[in-house]
Simulated assay, not measured.
Amino acid sequence: MNRIIAVLLIALCSSFSVTAADKQELAEYAYYGFEPEIVTNYISNRKKLGYVRISVELMVKKPEQLVSLERHDPLLRAAIVEILGNQTEDKVKSLTGKEEIRRECYEKINQLLEQETGQPLVVNLLFTKYLYD
């Protein structure tokens, strides 16, 4: 019985040490936000122009990678504006469309960063604000 308790305690302690290591790894992630927010038009079904206003955060593994994102901010911002400007109203206004746009922006950002820096730096791209009319 003592042997079983000892094995359980060892297993429990080792699971806590893995959790602590995971937390340490997560603590190194950093975020880069585009300032000011991105505002652009999209293809509208109406006579009136449609617009979308978004806040974008880019997640990277290491805080020192933020310097590269800041250096390439204009290029990355222009790519996001171009992607948004080519969307239809239906896509901009639907939840699945929003996710498709987010994924397209994520892939394009990493493609551009790989061309410029030699590696895709962005782990995730988040829309923290997404307004449209």
Rank of each mutant, 00 (worst) to 15 (best):
M1D: 15
M1T: 12
M1H: 13
N2K: 07
I4R: 07
I4H: 14
I5G: 07
A6W: 11
I10R: 03
S15R: 04
S15W: 11
F16S: 04
V18T: 12
T19W: 14
T19L: 12
T19Q: 10
A20D: 10
A21E: 11
A21F: 15
E25H: 06
A27W: 05
A27D: 11
E28L: 08
E28C: 01
Y29N: 07
A30F: 04
Y32V: 02
F34D: 08
E35V: 14
P36M: 03
P36K: 00
E37T: 10
E37Q: 13
I38W: 09
N41W: 01
N41L: 09
Y42D: 02
I43Q: 10
S44L: 01
K48E: 15
R53S: 14
I54K: 02
I54T: 04
S55Q: 11
S55I: 02
E57Q: 09
L58M: 14
M59T: 14
V60I: 06
P63A: 01
P63F: 01
S68Y: 15
L69G: 06
E70T: 12
R71H: 10
R71V: 12
P74T: 00
L75W: 01
L76E: 08
L76T: 06
R77G: 06
A79H: 07
I83D: 08
L84F: 11
G85K: 03
N86I: 01
Q87R: 13
T88C: 01
D90W: 04
D90R: 12
K91L: 10
K93F: 05
S94F: 04
L95Y: 10
L95M: 09
K98M: 13
E99T: 14
E99S: 12
E100T: 14
R102Y: 07
E104D: 14
E104L: 12
E104I: 07
Y106D: 09
E107P: 10
E107W: 08
E107K: 13
K108S: 09
K108W: 02
N110H: 09
Q111T: 08
Q111R: 10
L112S: 06
E114P: 08
Q115R: 09
E116C: 01
L121R: 02
V122P: 06
N124V: 00
L125F: 05
L126M: 12
K129I: 04
L131C: 01
L131P: 04
D133T: 13
